[in-house]
Design a protein around this nucleic acid. Structure first.
Length: 152
DNA sequence: GCCAACGTTGGC
DNA sequence: GCCAACGTTGGC
């Protein structure tokens, strides 16, 4: 069982949307490191911190869980999609994504500022300068602290 | 294989 | 909207 932080812009796809839809395929990741985490490291049941980037304020909005293993991201084959990739073929997909399911929404989001102020979280990747990875691993202890900060 | 140019991310 | 940080692309 591993733990992750996954970023989404709430204007594009928010935790509230996931709460309504229950599950979603995490499509549109076009970074190899992030893809490799989804393809090779994630397992069904892994815990996910759902992070709102480009939000006011930015921060962890709640919890999700990996609900199906990685499969080819179908948006890479869709010419009309902004995520279309002409290098991808059905035989050799370039991009994969896992399915995540809604778990819980924090009563109040745990803001980036709170994460920075919490000494025990100083080593978290999301805090670090220039850290842009949209899918990143999280220590269990950090996951638990944030869950508590979120009131769960 | 180097690296400059360019594009994207994401906080502010 | 700005811009620092970083990833990707493509000429050589």
């Amino acid at each position: 069982m591993k733990y992750w932080l996954m970023k989404s812009e709430p204007d594009v796809y928010s935790l509230d949307t996931l709460a309504k839809e229950k599950t979603t395929w995490w499509e549109g990741v076009r970074n190899y490191q992030a893809r490799n985490f989804m393809m090779k490291e994630m397992s069904v049941g892994d815990g996910v911190l759902f992070y709102h980037s480009n939000a006011e304020p930015p921060g962890v909005a709640g919890l999700a869980r990996v609900s199906a293993p990685a499969q080819a991201d179908k948006t890479q084959f869709d010419k009309k999609s902004e995520y279309f990739d002409k290098k991808a073929t059905l035989e050799k997909p370039q991009w994969y994504c896992v399915q995540v399911e809604f778990v819980a929404k924090f009563k109040k989001p745990v803001t980036l500022q709170q994460l920075r102020e919490e000494k025990a979280l100083a080593e978290m990747l999301v805090i670090k300068k220039g850290q842009r990875l949209s899918v990143q691993p999280v220590d269990k202890k950090h996951f638990e602290i944030i869950k508590k900060l979120g009131g769960l």
